[in-house]
């Protein structure tokens, strides 16, 4: 029972990794990274360390939010510079 869950998580992670590397638009990449992070959380939960799973769910969330805000800022700056010159 538990073993099958592990295989599902593994497939999720492989899909997330390949998609995250091969996609070119950053927003699509974020979606794939979310899939990857979910795979990580579920595999940690299968190992039985629930506290680590909790912390890793915080941390993947925080990392994705930070990268998203960086992306928005960078696009904004580029747009402004296009207006300037």
């Amino acid at each position: 029972m538990a073993i099958e869950f592990v295989y599902a998580a593994a497939i999720l992670m492989i899909v997330g990794a390949l998609g995250g590397v091969l996609q070119t638009r950053p927003i699509d990449k974020f979606l794939m990274l979310a899939v990857l992070g979910d795979g990580l959380i579920s595999i940690v939960a299968t190992f039985g360390y629930l506290d680590v799973a909790m912390a890793s769910s915080f941390m993947t969330f925080v990392g994705i939010i930070i990268m998203m805000i960086g992306l928005i800022r960078v696009l904004e700056i580029r747009k402004m510079r296009g207006e300037l010159g």
């Binding site: 915080f58 969330f61 925080v62 939010i65 805000i69 928005i72 800022r73 904004e76 700056i77 402004m80 510079r81 300037l84 010159g85």
Partner: peptide, 25 residues
């Protein structure tokens, strides 16, 4: 060249989820 002022980012998740997450952390 000095750029204009940034707009503050307006996303729903920043207002609701971030204080809770940081408190939990």
């Amino acid at each position: 060249p000095r750029l204009k002022e940034y707009k503050p980012i307006d996303m729903e998740v920043l207002k609701t989820a971030i204080p809770m997450t940081s408190l939990l952390c």
